[in-house]
Design a protein around this nucleic acid. Structure first.
Length: 909
RNA sequence: GCCGGUGUGGCGAAAUGGCAGACGCACAGGACUUAAAAUCCUGGGACCUUAAAAAGUCGUGCGGGUUCAAGUCCCGCCACCGGCACCA
């Protein structure tokens, strides 16, 4: 790359315009109530200034990037792919007259800074600030049109004050099933007091605490020894921690949880009202994992106990030949007979010691033990043995199943191994099919008892009949189960938001928690010298005794919130990032989040957050919506996942492979405009695609062609010579030496020139609306290739082209626009706020069109006909073609198909 | 195993059911140059013929089908990528 000659002085142009944009605050987005300076380009474009109301502002467009975690290693060329796409759209929408909100910030709490603190003692805040500085410098060097006045960092106390505040809203709310909505906990308390007057305080507290959306639970959690913290289900991948890839184990611990399961149905249903890709919606659907079925009670033989099972196939109840409980099921010890006690205890011990990996990944063979007890099948009164086995999960359904080996793969494997009976109760639709382990729908057979028969019914009918029967007898009911578990929300870390909660002891000695008042926010973390957990395994915050122990004898919660807390609502803070009185002001929230496309208009980010951030943020948003703090049920109206950028070797970029390309390299060698253009030219936004240094040079050359299309060659030579003899600090002034090409004049465009321009306007506009950046860029290239041949270049055409170019290569476009100002034809002094050119279809009309002529579907000729020729004329011209005639001589024409203005196909034999 | 996505020249890719390969990279030839770089012009899917061309045949992962016409629609496979995975 260093061997090639510089295409154009991007090294002067890019810093120049970045500085000008900063000084003008060119991309500041204005809220209702803001004071707009009359000289601001937005004021000039929209003819509004001073204090404005929402009604005076143009329609809004909110374009959001997933804010980055500022790591120490800086940005590589994969990072700006999504940022470039959103920036292009932001600039395009500004040109279309929208009030565009395009913000950036930092998801700055996180493990690496804390690990560094443990190793070196450097405060995580310092590490974080340094990393933010690096990221900000790099992102600014890319020339994105962010409104930096709204910049946020989740680690800023003015920010996390509101993360804590929202937590308190969750803590002080419950989910009202009847209203299908979150409600203030005070309503629950009031109702409870009406129902049970004079309830003892501890009992009332237990009731209330068990309904909060943020609650303490003693649950089996994922503990990661290496990280010294617990992790959420979503953060565990294949038995390892998502961050760091360390082993995790199940361990019952007392932790904070958020009741996301209460929102399972809403989170599922509202996927239908948002414009996301099917694959992403599907991932969330799978994660929520809704399944419809029935709960059925089985009496334990010779006992008063009942065991409730969940099944999606109640129609196969007659085929239940045994029952299986999860080893952790609470009735196991109670029902186990004396002679099976040892075997059961031994098995439970084995299961408890198995890692999650052993229990799922490696456990190809089914294991289990008979409890000695029997259950009574309610439909036919048959006694079936009760087993325990670890293929039944305690955490799903009721932790117990009825086993129907004939029609369930797992039950079939188990029954085969332990020689349990297999009874067919479903006839497959294809009689020749083997019914052993057949799990599809069919017709019920062998399904008749003293009081009910399902024989002859289809699976769907049988399900309905048996469920109604069970309900009528009080033996079961229709149920919906979800795979989704409540969200584990506490971490044993230093570098996170402390919980605004204290622990107190009641008069009878029991410990209870209590929320701090809003006035206590923000709760700042204490200063520490040592960031490790304590010797007794308590979180690092427990080291700060003065901080933990409050004067009134209560103690602070020493867990902190996970990183997701800050990213769950940051898109709302951007709307009103400096508001000291609320997490977002009402008017700002309403202006930016409501409208035709409710919420964020376009959100671009990677797939890695499909079930993490994107699910959590939807959940919080829905609570805030229920409580009346936001005006839309969903936060992100349209969401696009950009595909990953691979290294030049077609592998995922990673330090260990040595194929990482830092953004600084292309920015130095070809400039950010070329980098931006290449990021988009590589291929469709959503696709995974490899980086190519050659490819970057290709678009860099294109920008050089644009430069040469506009500037006078001689003046550029003078500029280059001056550059070698001038003080580098004065170089940017030298840009003035470069003059506009003399061929650019204020003349009327010719018809072909207008046609070239308008074809480009049409293609670029349509492609931007469809996020097809790669083909939009190729349309710009087509224009330039054509315009290079022009002897005179009408200023008006060239100006319109610059408007089309500017979202993609804003620095170069601004520089050329400034030079074009000398001609005085451009409509506005500010390119970034110049109206997008309108496409005129009349200018694309051709006099003559080319029509391919096929014989039996094979191309044989291309003829020219007048554009207004009718089908008969086109057919006549095709048959008259000198190339076509001889080919038809020995054939008879069966049929001639004429597609108007498109094609002729002659069917002949 | 289940769900989703992708498969087109040497490479990145483009094509409302209507001329497959736009645009770009790499490559080759030419112009400019003492020379190189840069720039500008030209060429290009494969095969078969040919001095060169014209003409012809084949061609969008594989096998079928619908249609005057299929990269595109339908049926059945294969490969790769991503997600979920004993969820009853």
């Amino acid at each position: 790359m260093s061997s090639s000659r510089r295409q154009y002085p991007f090294h002067l142009i890019e810093p120049k315009w970045q500085k000008i944009w900063d000084e003008r605050e060119a991309f500041r987005a204005f809220n209702p109530g803001d004071e707009i300076p009359p000289t601001h380009p937005f004021a000039l474009r929209h003819k509004v200034s001073g204090k404005v109301s929402a009604a005076q502002l143009p329609p809004k467009f909110y374009i959001l990037d997933m804010f980055p975690y500022p790591s120490g290693s800086g940005l590589h060329v994969g990072h700006p792919e999504g940022y470039t796409a959103t920036d292009i759209l932001a600039r395009y929408k500004r040109a279309r007259g929208f009030n565009v909100l395009h913000p950036m910030g930092w998801d700055a709490f996180g493990l690496p800074a804390e690990q560094f603190a443990i190793n070196t003692g450097q405060h995580p805040r310092k590490t974080t600030e340094e990393n933010i500085a690096t990221f900000k410098r790099q992102i600014k060097s890319l020339g994105f049109s962010y409104d930096w006045s709204r910049e946020i960092a989740t680690t800023d106390p003015d920010y996390f004050k509101w993360s804590q505040w929202i937590f308190l809203k969750l803590y002080n709310s419950y989910f009202d099933k009847e209203k299908n909505s979150a409600r203030p906990i005070a309503e629950l308390i009031e109702n409870r007091k009406l129902q049970i007057p004079n309830e003892p305080e501890s009992s009332l507290r237990a009731f209330v605490d068990s309904h909060r959306l943020a609650y303490i639970g003693q649950v089996p959690v994922w503990w990661c020894e290496e990280l010294g913290t617990v992790l959420a289900n979503e953060e565990v991948v294949d038995g390892k921690s998502e961050r760091g890839n360390f082993p995790v184990v199940r361990k019952p611990m007392q932790q904070w949880l958020l009741r996301i399961t209460a929102y399972a149905e809403k989170l599922l249903q509202d996927l239908d009202i948002i414009n996301w890709t099917d694959s992403l919606k599907e991932m969330q659907r799978n994660w929520i994992g809704r399944s419809e079925g029935a709960e059925v009670d089985f009496q334990v033989a010779g006992s008063s106990e009942k065991i409730r099972v969940f099944t999606t196939r109640p129609d196969t109840l007659f085929g239940a030949t045994y029952m299986v409980l999860a080893p952790e099921h609470k009735l196991v010890n109670e029902i186990t007979t004396a002679d099976q006690r040892d075997a059961v205890a031994k098995y439970k011990g084995e299961v408890a010691n198995k890692s999650d990996l052993e229990r799922t990944e490696l456990a190809k063979e089914k294991t289990g033990v008979f409890t000695g007890a029997y259950a009574i099948n309610p439909v036919n009164q048959e006694k079936i043995p009760i087993w325990i086995a670890d293929y039944v999960l305690a955490s799903y359904g009721t932790g117990a199943i009825m086993a129907v080996p004939a029609h369930d793969t797992r039950d079939f494997e188990f029954a085969t191994k332990f020689n349990l009976p297999v009874v067919q109760v479903v006839q497959p639709p294809d009689a020749k099919m083997d019914w052993h382990g057949f799990v599809g729908d069919g017709v019920s057979i062998n399904s008749s008892g003293p009081n009910i028969s399902l024989n002859g019914l289809s699976t769907a009918e049988a399900k309905k009949k048996i469920t109604e029967w069970l309900e009528s007898k009080g033996l079961g009911k229709r149920t919906i189960n979800y795979k989704l578990r409540d969200w584990l929300f506490s971490r044993q870390r230093y570098w996170g938001e402390p919980f605004p909660v204290v622990w107190k002891r009641s008069t009878n000695g029991t410990l209870y928690h209590e929320a701090l008042p809003d006035s206590a926010l923000p709760v700042l973390p204490p200063e520490l010298k040592d960031y490790k957990p304590t010797a007794t395994g308590e979180p690092p915050l427990a080291r700060a005794k003065d901080w933990v122990n409050l004067p009134d004898g209560s103690q602070r919660e020493t867990n902190t919130m996970p990183q997701w807390a800050g990213s769950c609502w940051y898109y709302l803070r951007y709307l009103d990032s400096k508001n000291p009185n609320a997490f977002v002001g009402k008017e700002a929230e309403h202006y930016w989040m409501s409208g035709k496309s409710a919420g964020v208009d376009l959100y671009v980010g990677g797939t890695e957050h499909a079930v993490l951030h994107l699910l959590y943020a939807r959940f919080w948003h829905k609570i805030l919506f229920d409580l009346g703090f936001v005006s839309t049920p969903e936060p992100f109206f349209k969401l696009v996942n950009q595909g990953m950028v691979l290294g030049e070797d077609n592998q995922k970029m990673s330090k260990s492979r040595g194929n990482v390309i830092p953004v600084d390299v292309p920015v130095r060698d070809v400039g950010t405009d070329a980098l931006r253009l290449y990021e988009m030219f590589m291929g469709p936004l959503e696709m995974v695609k490899p980086w190519s240094t050659r490819g970057v040079e290709g678009v860099y050359r294109f920008l050089g062609r644009v430069w040469r299309l506009f500037v006078d060659e001689k003046s550029e030579t003078e500029f280059e010579q001056a550059e070698t003899t001038t003080d580098p600090n004065k170089h940017s002034e030298l840009l003035k030496l470069v003059r506009l090409d003399a061929a650019i004049t204020d003349v009327a465009p010719t018809a072909p020139q207008l046609k070239t321009l308008h074809a480009c306007i049409k293609k670029v506009t349509e492609d931007l609306e469809g996020l097809r950046f790669n083909t939009a860029i190729s349309a710009l290239m087509v224009f330039v290739n054509e315009a290079m041949t022009w002897e005179t270049k009408p200023a008006a055409v060239m100006a319109d082209f610059l408007i089309l170019l500017h979202p993609f290569a804003p620095h170069l476009a601004e520089e050329l626009w400034e030079k074009l100002s000398a001609i005085g034809k451009q409509p506005s002094a500010n390119l970034a706020y110049s109206p997008w050119p309108e496409f005129d279809p009349a200018l694309l009309v051709e006099n003559e069109i080319e029509i391919p002529v096929q014989i039996n579907g094979k191309l044989r000729d291309v003829i020219k006909v007048p554009a207004d020729a009718d089908n008969a004329a086109i057919q006549a011209a095709a048959l008259a073609s000198e190339k076509i005639k001889p080919l038809l001589e020995s054939k008879s024409i069966k049929k001639v198909i004429v597609v108007p203005k498109k094609l002729v196909n002659i069917v002949a034999s």
